[in-house]
Design a protein around this nucleic acid. Structure first.
Lengths: 206, 206
DNA sequence: CTGTGTGAAGGCTTTCACAGCC
DNA sequence: GGCTGTGAAAGCCTTCACACAG
């Protein structure tokens, strides 16, 4: 007997599914054709249809996709139907800036439950997110079963903090520190590195 | 006669070349093997060697790659040997935070030459970068031949500002606004979208 | 004997073409 | 008639295997 393997969605496709989800924030009610949605997301219509096939056959021929159904199904597929708690570590310029966008994230299914810093100075909250010292990170993560972390500490501290996050059970990290984190296989890491993005763009200058 | 076509470096490879360049900031002098550098960048050694082959044959068999030669060649290939002027538009939380990292960028070959905002209030500089009203954007870009822009305005304003940037000759945009920009083919756009990154990570949670 | 450079193979993604349903 | 779903083809990227330089 051939073992059943649930083939997982290709990485690029997962990325584009988030993108489609994002593009559906504007339009409300009714349907949208693959061509229209592909235009918003700047991809080819055939690619969009192939991608959406991973979420099941939910388009109507001759009509397109029902927007609210599609939105729901995308959230289910990506795992953002239920509100997901997130911790943010490092409340320097970048970390604080991100905390101000919290409603943006909560609309997308992410709740920044707490922020941590080595030096939580006077304030106990930033943009209404409670701020704690690093020493209480592990306990908070455990008690609230947090699986996602945003890392905004300076480069020199990043690997140590990353190790601490992994040790207390974090499964995925969005890394703003300008270093490549060394993590075990099973930890998912996405990097946001402005210098690399600029360098990458400069290759395409004429 | 077969026309000579300079095959361009694949997108993923360009991205990884930036990554390697970045990983070489620490070690100084001497050589490094493909295995060691691949470990720092978290890729496979064979992939690294294939990627570096786009920069020419610069490894020594039995030894590895000379670090300073490699760094120089990567910068040449990516087009960051000469200092590249960049404009930043939108000095809200995110824009201001980025301006504080300017030395980080200048070390990598990018000079944030000016920042622009609709409401440049009292200050004429942020983190020593001169701040101008939007009305002087076109002139500045033209006079200084700026080709790269960082876009940090709110989503509702982003497309308009993007159009203005394209109109005055900007060739590449690093977009922090949470929308998909509609631009002509030839403009390179990289997006930094925290909500999408989080959504993407949440797919990989167990 | 170590570690690079590279054709060839394999695997994955995108695009095409068109059948099928509304 | 319009638009989706999907096998097949094409294209691209990664990995392998190994020749060969230092």
């Amino acid at each position: 007997m051939i073992p059943f393997v649930k083939k997982s969605i290709p990485r690029n496709t997962v990325y584009r599914l988030s993108l489609y989800h994002h593009c559906l924030e504007g339009p409300d009610g009714g349907s949208i054709s693959s061509e229209a949605l592909a235009g918003l997301a700047r991809v080819k219509p055939t690619q969009l249809r192939k991608d959406l096939a991973w979420c099941g056959s939910l388009g109507k021929r001759g009509t397109g996709y029902d927007i609210s159904t599609l939105r729901r199904r995308l959230a289910e597929t990506l795992g953002t139907s239920a509100l997901q708690p997130v911790v943010l570590v490092g409340t320097g310029r970048m970390g604080s800036a991100l905390l101000r966008f919290r409603e943006n994230f909560s609309r997308r299914g992410f709740d920044i439950a707490a922020a941590f810093d080595t030096r939580p100075d006077r304030r106990s909250r930033i943009a209404s997110v409670p701020l704690f010292p690093m020493s209480s990170l592990a306990r908070f993560v455990n008690e609230r079963s947090v699986r996602l972390a945003i890392l905004c500490v300076p480069g020199v501290a990043a690997q140590d903090v990353c190790n601490a996050l992994v040790a207390c059970g974090i499964q995925a990290i969005l890394n703003f520190a300008p270093i490549v984190l060394q993590t075990p296989e099973q930890i998912a890491v996405n990097n946001v590195n402005v210098a690399i993005e600029l360098e990458n763009l400069s290759y395409f200058l004429k």
